[in-house]
């Protein structure tokens, strides 16, 4: 199952990221993971949050552009070599990664992948024995 990531358009200037966090904070939305891609003029923030629909709605209400993007999340051991084994399976399945980011919990680590065709990639990786996390599972982390 893919997970919904919230992707937000921000202008590349002081205060814009803070405006987004302020909106989320005021509605008690917790950010679980965050990655930021920037150009000289704009940035795209990708976040995993505890309530994607609420987050998207309130961001839009506050004149921010927010869309939902499907991403694949995998859990690995928080130890040397485990990301490598995970990525070997991506290679074996011939799945191209558009971008990725990660966060670590107390004992486990979580890898978030954006791929071109999420459903197809998920099936290919599944056949290599990889089971992606559901929205509930990632929220429960």
């Amino acid at each position: 199952m893919s997970v919904n990531q919230v992707s937000v358009f921000l202008e590349n200037k002081p205060g814009t990221l803070n405006k987004m966090t302020e909106v989320l904070a005021s509605h008690n939305i917790n950010i679980r993971a965050l990655s930021l891609a920037e150009t000289s003029e704009f940035g795209i923030v990708r976040i995993l949050v505890n309530d994607v629909f609420e987050a998207t709605n309130i961001l839009r209400e506050n004149n921010l552009i927010a869309i939902l993007t499907p991403v694949l999340a995998y859990e690995i051991e928080d130890k040397a070599g485990d990301l490598n084994s995970l990525l070997e399976k991506f290679t074996a399945a011939n799945v191209n990664i558009e971008y990725m980011y990660a966060f670590a919990g107390k004992t486990r680590a979580y890898m978030i992948f954006r791929v071109n065709d999420t459903k197809k990639a998920e099936a290919l990786l599944n056949s290599k024995g990889l089971k992606s996390l559901t929205q509930e599972e990632i929220s429960a982390v």
Binding site: F9, E38, T39, I44, I65, I67, T69, E98, R114
Partner: peptide, 15 residues
């Protein structure tokens, strides 16, 4: 002004 329809999570695509 960016619109929801023209926005994606992919920098390359937006560019």
């Amino acid at each position: 002004e960016m619109t929801p329809d023209m926005f994606t999570d992919n920098v390359g695509e937006v560019q």
